[in-house]
Amino acid sequence: MKIRIDLSDGLVTATLDNNDSSKDFVKQLPMKLTLEDYASTEKISDLPRPLSTQGAPAGFTPSAGDVAFYAPWGNLAIFHKGFEYSSGLIKLGRIDSGLEILARPGPLDVTITLLGD
């Protein structure tokens, strides 16, 4: 499954993993979010509703380009820098192109839509 993240001045694409959390994320699309800076490593935003955590590992170590769901807070996280192992973090997929756009400081208004498989 591929998604596109549209910004006023750019486009980001990503490929989602085949897991329950990613499938649940797709069910919420299309969606408009404001991505905010967090810890100088990621952009985050609350989701309309929490995603399924069925079958998900206890956590993972994200690297730049990972798209994830942080279950304890119920938010989407897109990493533009690597980070340490985080319990409750579930990988949804990976950015294919446009990561540099998401690394810019400040909030970003985005629209996320499904492109297909």
Rank of each mutant, 00 (worst) to 15 (best):
Lys2Arg: 15
Lys2Cys: 03
Arg4Thr: 14
Arg4Pro: 06
Asp6Gly: 09
Leu7His: 08
Ser8Ile: 12
Ser8Tyr: 09
Leu11Ala: 12
Leu11Phe: 10
Leu11Glu: 15
Val12Phe: 00
Val12Arg: 00
Thr13Arg: 13
Ala14Asn: 04
Thr15Ser: 14
Leu16Arg: 01
Asn19Gln: 06
Asp20Ser: 13
Ser22Gln: 04
Lys23Ile: 02
Lys23Met: 10
Asp24Gly: 01
Asp24Asn: 14
Asp24Glu: 11
Asp24Arg: 04
Phe25Val: 03
Phe25His: 05
Phe25Cys: 00
Val26Ile: 15
Lys27Glu: 15
Lys27Tyr: 03
Lys27Arg: 15
Gln28Ala: 09
Gln28Arg: 09
Leu29Ile: 06
Pro30Asn: 08
Met31Arg: 05
Lys32Leu: 03
Thr34Cys: 00
Thr34Val: 14
Leu35Thr: 05
Glu36Asp: 13
Glu36Gly: 00
Glu36Leu: 13
Glu36Cys: 04
Asp37Thr: 01
Tyr38Thr: 04
Ala39Asn: 14
Ala39Glu: 12
Ala39Leu: 13
Thr41Glu: 11
Lys43Gly: 07
Lys43Val: 06
Lys43Thr: 00
Ile44Arg: 08
Ser45Ile: 01
Ser45His: 03
Ser45Arg: 03
Ser45Met: 07
Asp46Lys: 13
Asp46Arg: 12
Leu47Gly: 01
Arg49Thr: 12
Arg49Ala: 15
Pro50Gly: 05
Pro50Arg: 03
Pro50Met: 07
Pro50Ala: 04
Leu51Ser: 00
Ser52Asp: 11
Thr53Val: 15
Thr53Asp: 09
Gln54Pro: 02
Gln54Cys: 01
Gln54Met: 10
Gln54Ile: 10
Gly55Ile: 04
Ala56Ser: 14
Ala56Ile: 06
Pro57Met: 00
Gly59Val: 03
Gly59His: 02
Phe60Tyr: 14
Phe60Arg: 02
Thr61Trp: 08
Thr61Asn: 07
Pro62Glu: 01
Asp66His: 13
Val67Lys: 05
Ala71Gly: 07
Pro72Ile: 02
Ala77Asn: 09
His80Tyr: 15
His80Asn: 08
His80Cys: 03
Lys81Pro: 01
Lys81Met: 08
Phe83Pro: 01
Glu84Ser: 14
Tyr85Met: 00
Tyr85Trp: 13
Ser86Ala: 15
Ser86Glu: 06
Ser86Pro: 06
Ser86Asn: 10
Ser87Cys: 01
Leu89Val: 09
Ile90Thr: 07
Ile90Ser: 07
Ile90Leu: 03
Leu92Val: 06
Leu92Gly: 05
Leu92Glu: 06
Gly93Ala: 02
Gly93Cys: 04
Gly93Arg: 05
Arg94Thr: 13
Asp96Lys: 08
Asp96Trp: 10
Ser97Ala: 14
Gly98Pro: 08
Ile101Asp: 12
Ile101Tyr: 13
Leu102Tyr: 02
Ala103Gly: 12
Arg104Cys: 08
Pro105Ala: 07
Gly106Cys: 10
Pro107Met: 04
Leu108Gln: 15
Asp109Leu: 10
Asp109His: 12
Val110Ala: 08
Thr111Leu: 05
Thr113Pro: 01
Leu115Thr: 09
Gly116Leu: 11
Gly116Cys: 10
